[in-house]
Design a protein around this nucleic acid. Sequence first.
RNA 1: GGCGGUGUAGCUCAGCGGUUAGAGCACACGGUUCAUAACCGUGGUGUCCAGGGUUCGAAUCCCUGCACCGCCA
Length: 626
Amino acid sequence: MEKNKFYITTPIYYSNSEPHIGTVYTTIVADTFARFYRLKDYDVFFLTGLDEHGQKLARTAQEKGYTPQEYVDMMAQKFLDTWKKIGITNDDFIRTTQKRHEEVVQKVFQKLYDNGYLYKGTYAGWYCTPCETFYQKEELHDGNCPNCGRPVEFLEEETYYFKLSEFGPALLKYIEEHPEFVYPESRRNEVISFIKSGLKDISATRTTVKWGIPVPFDPKHTVYVWFDALVNYISALGYLSDDDTKFRRYWPADVHLIGKDILRFHAIIWPAILMALNIPLPKTVLAHGFWTIKGGKISKSKGNKVDPHELINIYGVDALRYFLLREVPLGLDGEYSDEAFHRRYTSDLANDLGNLLNRVLTVAEKYSEGKVPNPSEMKEEDKALLEKTEETAKRVEEEMEKFNPSSALGSIWEVIQDANRYIDQQAPWNLTSDKERLNTVIYTLLEALRRISILLYAFIPDSAVKIQEQLGYQDPQFSWDLIKDVKIPVGQKLNKGKILFPRVERKEKEEKEEIASEPKITIDEFKKIDLRVAKVLSARRVENSDKLLLLEIDLGDEKRQIVAGIAEHYKPEDMVGKEIIVVYNLQPAKIRGYESQGMLLAAKDSKGRLAILTPEKEVDPGSKVS
RNA sequence: GGCGGUGUAGCUCAGCGGUUAGAGCACACGGUUCAUAACCGUGGUGUCCAGGGUUCGAAUCCCUGCACCGCCA
């Protein structure tokens, strides 16, 4: 009988920036599902890759002094290195600059054109040259760019549209008939209400972007990156190419794992393209949440990023995998904190699991010569522990089918807790006068650990392997069937090794940084900070934010806008006309969609009162502060 | 502004019409010594956001308000 297949994808990541906690999260989750279904003997195909086209990327490459191709090659290596380090078991790595991909995109594009799903039109909008972005009239702020506040110009560009508007009813019908198509349900509702609000045709080519795939029937156009990127899911399988065996074998995808930010592309536009191509839709689009830090989004401009490499260096790959998979149910946002990470590591991995392995092997070393002992008849409590592992296997399967690795891990930890309880209750160290019973207890524990290692394999593979090695397996064996059928061989020599999850002393680093007071800086370092007096010309609240004000300020020779987190303390009208102190040479940052070109200085006391710094008497705007 | 979600123990969350509201972590006490100061047991705390309604009965259903979040415009 032919094996069941399981095709899972991650989005292809934009190679503009290096792997970060978000991309690492997505990839680890996908890897866990891939490993899990391989354990269950499915024929798994796990795809990830990179999105390497687009204007933004070409510009970044240029800024860094590379050709676009050199730059994406370099970035691809960084991604591959990271995936290797984390133990990602992808079966292919698609890059949109690969010929195999470009050819398929062109063929797909041609096919859609031939079938009448693409038509030539013009794209009209207000264009902000510095931001290289089109806006619709409603998006503008007082007629200016909502991003940088600068004037925009009305432009028209020739483009080919994809007839998305035709697919609304068919998509709705499909989603209603396939409740598992979008997951979790809250996202499904979002998709439905978006479709019901009416779909518009969507621009699918650009004439101004050169770093992209040329449109075969009109080469002055390139295919818009979103289209280019989506096709990766079938181009990697060889759709419309000479050898399409993989496409025939694996399509449709079982799971497109994505972040919630790209839900519309995957749950609306991509299915519409597939319908236009007359090929089946993916079974499930699974949208996960974001990681936040102290309630805010993780972003470079806030400087609150989490460095996955650093966590791996301190705690190990499996700790990172475990934390990301366990801490938060898939689909919800999760709050990252070093404390939470450390707590998970210490209490779950070190205390519960690592310590269990360690104490069992010590007992075996002391009381059964470091070998798997020969058990005599098992009592109820022995059988109960082993049966629990089988029940847990079923529960893990159920939870994974519901896309909930967090709960799956929760149930595995119940077995680990049971095993800890079992060893306490049986107290093998008190059984030295009853050798038969002692051997049975030790055997039961070793066998339970063997089973636990298989339960854990998809989630924390390195540790699962290490557990089996310590149980004396030369060549660790992982297969879901082995949870019940096979028993650990009597007489097998155990191989107690290093502590699985050694305790990590936290705080050292941070305490040094925080408590050892702030380091002194030199006068030269201080001089790097350019402080200026500015006069507030206008102020208004930033929409959807209680804390932010958008200030337009006069710096003598120039005007700037800054975003300041003072709205809870100052009303916009109070600010107008005030002179403030700003950091003039601060790297601009985008906050809530607005570019902040500086930072104002203010003092906050422990009671939460906030006071803005202002010159003691009026001086000309633009004056330097020193 | 529209649609949707969330608000439960110090923290993270489960429960979503029916006995005295639960789990993990944290905390306290006890046990244990095989173990990574680990493990096991016991224990407490909750105006279940606020107000109103439906019901024999509501954390659970309905309405209103507040707060936060998401999607859209």
